[in-house]
């Protein structure tokens, strides 16, 4: 594309021809390519190194071999079956999906309630939600744990785990902002057509909000998948533990280092689902953050 090839601040169109040949051979903004390439190498190196180690046996790790070993499937079996990571991944997937769907649905509804209706004290309701931004879950951890375990009617421990995490001040804030930027004609027209608020939500608002919903789902899935401290203290039954807990149990003997291959296999499989979700929903995610150039 000519536009991206031309410099942003060139005002003399003949400047390009007057440059000497050697300068035309070097790509423009080579320094940007250089810095970005170095950054990509440094930032991705730990993950590729982990991938390499996950195929090796321990002697190969200690001798710093840079060729893939043949222990990939052995390590995979160790991690998934012996160390129960398959089970932990399934547990975490259930928890993360419940959290991300629950949070998104509740945030959309709250955003609807904060934008599309008239009632006194609306700012108070919004303030009530927004103030919780300064009360992170970790600050409330001890008191929340005490409150949650004092109630023994939970049908399943996962209800105790996920329910306290379902409200999201960030999500409510994002959807409120998003709905407020939508043209008011939309709801006027919907009302003229006799649509109920719920019909308006499902036929108009949600179809127009997929980018925001996608972005929020990615963030919330990561939030759920990365839960560690809360399940660590809450879940008594080890079979119900989450993938991050399984991961930390794989890296128990770090300095002794008798299990680097399985440990890095754990790293790979623990990171795979969030990375896949991130890649699938990347378009929505970037658009939700208004990141694409051609908007």
């Amino acid at each position: 594309m000519t536009e991206s090839a031309s410099s942003r601040f060139v005002f003399d169109p003949s400047a390009n021809q007057s440059r000497p040949l050697w300068r035309r051979l070097i790509p423009q903004r080579w320094y940007a390519h250089l810095i970005l390439t170095i950054s990509v190498i440094i930032i991705t190196f730990p993950m590729f190194y982990a991938l390499l180690i996950s195929t090796q046996s321990n002697p190969e790790v200690w001798n710093h071999k840079f060729t893939p070993g043949d222990k990939f499937f052995e390590n995979l079996h160790t991690v998934m079956v012996q160390r129960n990571m398959g089970r932990f991944m399934l547990n975490s997937f259930v928890i993360a999906m419940a959290i991300s769907i629950g949070k998104t649905v509740m945030s959309v509804l709250a955003g609807l309630g904060l934008v599309y209706f008239r009632y006194p004290g609306k700012w108070l309701v919004f303030g009530f939600v927004l103030v919780t931004l300064i009360m992170p879950g970790d600050v409330l951890l001890i008191a929340l744990y005490r409150r949650v375990v004092s109630f023994d009617g939970w049908p399943h421990p996962y209800f105790a785990l996920t329910l306290p995490l379902l409200a999201s001040a960030t999500g409510v804030f994002i959807f409120r902002q998003h709905f407020m930027t939508m043209p008011p004609d939309l709801s006027e027209a919907a009302q003229l057509d006799g649509a109920s608020p719920l019909q308006f939500l499902f036929r108009v608002l949600i179809p127009l909000s997929w980018n925001t919903i996608g972005a929020l789902m990615v963030i919330m899935f990561l939030f759920g998948w990365n839960q560690f401290l809360w399940p660590l203290i809450l879940l008594r039954d080890q079979n119900l533990q989450v993938v991050q807990w399984g991961m930390q149990s794989l890296s128990q003997n770090l300095e002794v280092g008798d299990n680097f291959g399985p440990m890095m296999m754990g790293v790979i499989i623990t990171s795979l689902p969030p990375m896949i979700i991130f890649l699938i929903l990347q378009r929505q995610f970037m658009k939700g953050f208004a990141l694409t150039r051609d908007k």
Binding site: M47, A50, Q244, M247, L254, M264, V267, S271
Partner: peptide
């Protein structure tokens, strides 16, 4: 894509990888 992606990595995984990278002998 390559630069934003570590955002998806959990602190536990980051700790595990750096435990491998920064081991004294290994």
């Amino acid at each position: 894509t390559f630069l934003i992606w570590p955002y998806a990595i959990s602190p536990i995984v980051a700790g595990s990888i750096f435990g491998l990278l920064l081991g004294t002998e290994s």
